[in-house]
């Protein structure tokens, strides 16, 4: 195991940001971390990275307890933050070179690695530009580059592809997968379901500081009651009597969110006409309706009762 969270809690005054969190992340695993804003993902990452002290419990990183060997643990972890964190006055090259230096990238390989990663992510041509002058997407590339250059034993990416165009997004995915192939452990905090699904070996869903679900993407999808989802967008959701629909035997669970009804069902094809009939009886006009297999988004909705904002 590379990282073991043991009964970890982190409180800020009276607010519990992480509650009794237990999780073991395997070597060379990509662990997706899903959760809405305020779920405690960043606090969890920063406690593992020894920026915060645990309030209770601990984290073991590569066999070292964060409470006892914090400086050693820091040397094993590299974080690409959600919002880029670097000196605005420095150039792209200076930011990355400094990060490489301070995180211990050997002098012999530093320059070549900097050039390699910067060229791949399209930063080489703008290496002399000061970071304050960069667009959001370019800043994100610089932030991600820090970890790609550092190549730590445990790489943490917090929303690695936010603000990126599709092509760069796929390139970053490819580079994250390469890190795994090199034997590194990756923790991927994301709000993007497709990203979590494509990259993660396993996914952890967090809500209100707690772990609410854990498994491979397919295991999680199978865990959705019914396994299928009917998504209905009515013209006026306020008019709907949910209880009248819930009595249909194939319906396991209904979640209404942002004017859309999600009905977790078994035998979707059979159930769909009955659902539409019930809505019609209530005088509700349906704008759109889909029948689909459960996605990670649905898993999230089922476990947390809310949609994941992206």
């Amino acid at each position: 195991m590379t990282v073991i969270f043991q009964n970890l809690s982190k409180n800020f005054k009276n607010v519990a940001a992480v509650r009794d969190f237990n999780l073991a992340i395997e070597d060379s695993e990509i662990m997706g971390l899903l959760g809405p804003n305020g779920a405690g993902k960043t606090t969890l990452i920063l406690t593992m990275a020894t920026v915060y002290h645990p309030s209770e419990g601990t984290v073991i990183v590569n066999g070292y307890d964060v409470r006892r060997k914090p400086t050693l643990v820091r040397g094993m972890i590299g974080i690409a933050f959600q919002d880029p964190r670097f000196d605005r006055l420095l150039s792209v090259y200076e930011v990355l070179e400094w990060h490489a230096k301070i995180t211990g990238v050997a002098k012999q390989v530093r320059a070549s690695r900097l050039e390699e990663i910067m060229r791949r992510l399209g930063l080489w041509e703008i290496r002399k530009r000061r970071t304050w002058a960069l667009s959001g997407g370019m800043k994100k590339r610089v932030e991600d580059s820090k970890v790609f250059i550092q190549r730590p034993s445990i790489a943490v990416f917090d929303e690695p592809t936010a603000y990126l165009d599709l092509q760069t997004r796929m390139l970053v995915w490819e580079m994250i997968e390469e890190m795994k192939e090199e034997g590194r452990t990756v923790i991927l905090a994301t709000n993007m379901m497709d990203e979590a699904e494509k990259l993660s070996d396993r996914v952890t869903i967090m809500n209100l500081g707690s772990l609410v679900a854990l498994g491979t993407p397919s295991q999680l999808k199978q865990s959705v009651t019914g396994g299928e989802v009917i998504e209905v967008k009515p013209s006026d959701s306020a008019k709907i009597d949910l209880e009248a629909i819930k009595i249909l035997p194939q319906i396991e669970h209904i979640v209404a969110s942002d004017g859309v009804l999600k009905l977790f069902v078994t035998q979707g094809r059979k159930t769909l006409p009955s659902v539409l009939e019930k809505l019609s009886e209530q005088g509700v006009t349906v704008e759109s309706v889909y029948l689909k297999e459960a996605s990670l988004e649905d898993v999230f909705l089922q476990y947390t009762g809310s949609k994941l904002t992206s």
Binding site: T71, R74, I77, D83, R85, F86, I102, T103
Partner: peptide, 14 residues
């Protein structure tokens, strides 16, 4: 305030 401190404190320094 900007979160830069998180980054600096995550670096391998005592």
């Amino acid at each position: 305030e900007t979160g830069m401190l998180d980054y600096l404190l995550s670096l391998p320094l005592s």
